[in-house]
Each structure stands twice: as structure tokens, then as C-alpha cells.
């Protein structure tokens, strides 16, 4: 079983690479929110360069080409050449768009990285919420009286059946959409799976001789849960959680598609993909890059999950052999 550690290492390396990029790249990239003359610099393909001309009154314009004829500066914006007297120009700076620009002339690379920070932190926080809630719920179901188990599981079914769209509506109607509300919604829609997993795994524990022994000693349910059940849940939970992180990022993309995602101008991979989808016929790179970023993350997390799973399996088999 040497596949496990190697996979785990590969997955962790991918995640690490992504995190490094997302944290460090903003240092060299332009401001992700800066709107640069959309008429001259909107919807440019990757590896484009524009010249940004700033005038005395603070306004600035961007064009693909620049030429000087005596006192006059000519700038090509879109398909037309436009002219300004040289004396009014304060500065002319070239700007590169590594991954192209969006409709408002914002830098896609910079937005992609900023969106990575948002998507990953939204994913992790909502995951933490879902795991906490789900674990508490599942443990309570197993360790409490039988009626509580029935009630809690019925509520899980009810929560699974509650249509996503209504809850989105209700939430968006009552509170101002923000990062916080998105995290809450994502968390609220993912804890049920965790609760079921925890309950299932904990039920297995309950049959084991060491649990029965501990119970026989008269330990309190809380202590039983914390000391004797929880440690056994760590591996399956970790495996499940890494996969779930990818699902959460995808769910955020679906919310954005329906207009309930992270509110603008904050970018997220999901909202960038959804916005890009609208213009894919004109600028295919706009939806593709965020799509690839989501795919890469899900792949990375799934690889980590696989690695963890195989590690667990290896241990288990080793333990049984011993």
C-alpha cells in the first residue's frame, strides 16, 4: 500500500501550490477591482498589452496601439483611432493582461487569484460549519435516546428535502447578501451528509467490544462520545471533508449562476465562471480559466482524500494482520 502516502503527498503538494499562488501572486498582479477604460481594454484575450494614457484631469484611457505624430498622441481603442494633444498627457504606461481582461477591462489573472482567496476561504469556512454541525447532530442521534435518534434523522430528511431555491430566496430576501450569508447557506446545505456519515460510523463503534466495555463501566454519554467515538471518526470525516470542499466550491458556482452567490464586486471562481458563461461566444477564456481553477482544486482535494483513504485502509489491514 505505497499508493497512499504518495497520493497524499502529491495531493498536498497541489493544494500547497494553489495556496501559495493565491497568497503570493497578488503581490505582483494589478488591483483586481480596478476598472480600466472598458471600451479600450474590455474583453481582451490572454497575453494582450494595452497602453494606459492618463490625462491631466485624472481620466485615463486604454488602447491597443499608440503612435506619436508631433504634438498629438494617437491611441487605438477597439477599431478606431483617437487623438489627444500631447501636452495634456500626464503618463503613458503599458499594461499586460496575462489571462486577458473581462468586460470592464479588469485583469482576469488578478481577479482569478483574488477569487481563489474568496472561494477557498468560503469553502473552508462553510465546510467547518457543516462538519461541526453534522458531527454534533450525528453524535447526538447515536448517543441520545432512541426517540431523539428518530427525530434528528427525520429532521435530516426534512432538511435534505427542503428545496434549495426557497431557502436561497428567503435568505436573500431577509438579509443583505455577503460573504457571511453565502458561507451560512453553503454550510446549511451540506451538514446533513456529515450527520449521516457520523451516525453510521458511530453506530459501527457502538457494536465494538471496547465501546460496550466503556459503557459497562458507566461512563457518561459525553465522555463516551469525546474519548471513545470521536477519535475513530477522524479518518472517515477527513476523507469526506476534503471531497466535500470541492462540492462546496461547485455549489457556490451554481448559486452564482442563479444570482445568489458572492455579491459583486467581490470575485469568486463561481461568479467569474457564471459571468463568463454569458459571454463565452465572444471570449471563451472568461469562463474557462475559473472553470479550470475549480477543477484543479477539486482534483487536488480529491487526491488528498484518496491518499487519506488509502492510508486508512492500509493501516486497517496492517492492524488486522497484526
Amino acid at each position: 500500500m505505497k499508493g497512499g502516502p504518495r497520493r497524499l503527498r502529491f495531493g498536498l503538494a497541489l493544494v500547497g501550490f494553489e495556496l501559495t499562488l493565491v497568497v503570493l501572486a497578488p503581490l505582483v498582479l494589478p488591483n483586481p477591482h480596478a476598472i480600466v477604460d472598458p471600451r479600450g481594454a474590455g474583453l481582451l484575450p490572454p497575453f494582450s498589452r494595452v497602453f494606459v494614457v492618463t490625462l491631466q484631469d485624472g481620466t485615463s484611457f486604454a488602447g491597443l496601439e499608440l503612435s506619436r505624430k508631433g504634438e498629438v498622441l494617437a491611441l487605438r481603442r477597439g477599431s478606431s483611432w483617437e487623438q489627444v494633444p500631447e501636452k495634456l498627457v500626464v503618463s503613458v504606461k503599458p499594461q499586460w493582461y496575462l489571462l486577458g481582461s473581462d468586460t470592464l477591462g479588469r485583469d482576469v489573472a488578478a481577479r482569478l487569484v483574488k477569487a481563489g482567496q474568496i472561494s477557498l476561504s468560503v469553502g473552508v469556512s462553510s465546510l467547518a460549519l457543516a462538519v461541526t454541525l453534522g458531527t454534533l447532530w450525528g453524535m447526538a442521534a447515536v448517543l441520545g435516546p432512541r426517540w431523539l435518534d428518530r427525530l434528528l434523522m427525520a429532521l435530516v430528511d426534512a432538511a435534505l428535502a427542503l428545496p434549495l431555491l426557497f431557502v436561497l430566496l428567503a435568505v436573500s430576501a431577509f438579509v443583505r447578501p455577503s460573504l457571511g450569508t453565502v458561507v451560512l447557506m453553503l454550510g446549511f446545505f451540506s451538514w446533513m451528509g456529515v450527520a449521516r456519515l457520523v451516525r453510521g460510523q458511530a453506530l459501527l463503534c457502538r457494536e465494538k467490544p471496547w465501546f460496550l466495555a466503556a459503557q459497562g463501566l458507566g461512563l457518561k454519554p459525553l465522555r463516551l462520545a469525546l474519548v471513545h467515538v470521536l477519535p475513530h471518526l477522524v479518518t472517515p470525516l477527513a476523507t469526506d471533508a476534503t471531497l466535500r470542499l470541492g462540492d462546496l466550491i461547485l455549489l457556490e458556482a451554481a448559486l452564482s449562476f442563479l444570482g445568489f452567490g458572492v455579491p459583486p464586486p467581490i470575485p469568486s471562481w463561481g461568479s467569474m465562471a457564471a459571468e463568463g458563461f454569458e459571454v463565452w461566444r465572444l471570449a471563451f477564456w472568461l469562463p474557462v480559466f475559473p472553470g479550470l481553477a475549480i477543477a484543479l482544486s477539486v482534483f487536488a482535494f480529491a487526491t488528498v482524500a484518496d491518499g487519506l483513504g488509502e492510508l486508512g485502509r492500509g493501516e486497517r489491514i496492517a492492524g488486522e494482520a497484526a
Binding site: 470592464l104 447578501p177 444570482g259 445568489f260 459583486p264
Partner: peptide
């Protein structure tokens, strides 16, 4: 448009929060 309005009004010191709603 909301994002552009937000950027324009920020230049005169007015804070705008664009809020998409159903």
C-alpha cells in the same frame, strides 16, 4: 452598471454597496 456606479461614487467619497436581489 452597479459596479461602475460604485466605482464612480467612491471617487467622491460616497460608499455604495451593490446588492443583487431576487
Amino acid at each position: 452598471a452597479a459596479v461602475m456606479i460604485q466605482a464612480d461614487l467612491a471617487k467622491v467619497g460616497v460608499r455604495v454597496q451593490p446588492t443583487p436581489m431576487e
